[in-house]
Design a binder for these strands. Structure first.
Lengths: 151, 151
DNA sequence: TATTGTTATACTCTATAACTATA
DNA sequence: TATAGTTATAGAGTATAACAATA
């Protein structure tokens, strides 16, 4: 029985570690993304639109685990800058198919590379082998829940 | 050269993995903390107050990597519920030393245990050995920056 | 002059509820 | 009846600027 039995150091908690890790990565990404005029979430949206066949707004939101109402504002901003276009789905006119414009594709190329560099800088303190381990562990921790279908 | 050279899957990015991991842990903690009437951040504050000698508001904020203006509202809420007390520092009357009340200490005991259980549930998908690895990796990634002094 | 705590304010990210148009 | 997109709204969490008290 220790003196501080109840007071496990906050710095050892995973909540704290995950918070700081994410903040550090976000800062690195933000710095490298600045020249492209998009933020990390917007790059994620552009990436999703480039993966496989163009999704509807709802599908895009689900792939990113964000709310569909959040996606509306996100796409408004991207469309205003001419990076994406909404097109009514002929097969189901309730849906908007979202596609990258040429400008959007070009922005994605540069921004994706910048994000890769930021991740590289983030991961620099650990070995290549540990980076793969870390990715696998995080994936295992995430799929422990039934996320993905969720939101 | 692949077809999707620019579109590295969003799900493979560490930003996405860290976001979802943190969300899952937060949900597990929130569920187990409900009976104690405190949230995760408040438990973190109580923990910091119990570690070593009682800190000032600013010191408590720095140890948690949160802003001192955020700490004001956090302590207001905890003090209103009788879990902490602010005491003017006799040595420097600009500072408030923040201490746990008896009720605060009792809440911390139960809430810290509940948080431990939530972390255990969160980490269940990976081996004990990997949990230690994960903690070490995250700590290495965090200290790659000059956090801690920051804010 | 600088620092601690405080207040006011605002911004980001997120979620809920209710509406519309389609199905 | 149910779904996709939208709007309005609100709630966390955070940060900035400016102020009072104190150093």
């Amino acid at each position: 029985m220790e003196d501080e039995a109840t007071a496990r150091a906050v710095r050892d908690r995973f909540g704290y570690l995950l918070k700081l890790a994410r903040e550090r990565l976000a800062a690195l990404i933000a710095a490298r993304l600045e020249p492209f005029g998009v933020n990390g979430r917007e790059v994620a949206v552009l990436s999703v639109l480039a993966e496989g066949k163009p999704p509807s707004q709802l599908e895009a939101a689900q792939r990113l685990a964000i709310d569909r109402t959040t996606m509306v504002a996100l796409l408004d901003a991207l469309e205003r800058r001419g990076l994406v276009e909404r097109r009514a789905d002929p097969a189901d006119r309730r849906r908007n198919i979202v596609v990258l414009t040429t400008a959007g594709h070009e922005t994605l190329i540069g921004a994706a590379r910048a994000t890769d560099e930021a991740e590289e800088a983030f991961l620099a303190p650990i070995s290549i082998r540990d980076r793969a381990r870390l990715r696998r562990m995080l994936q295992a921790l995430i799929s422990g829940s039934d996320e993905g279908a969720g939101r």
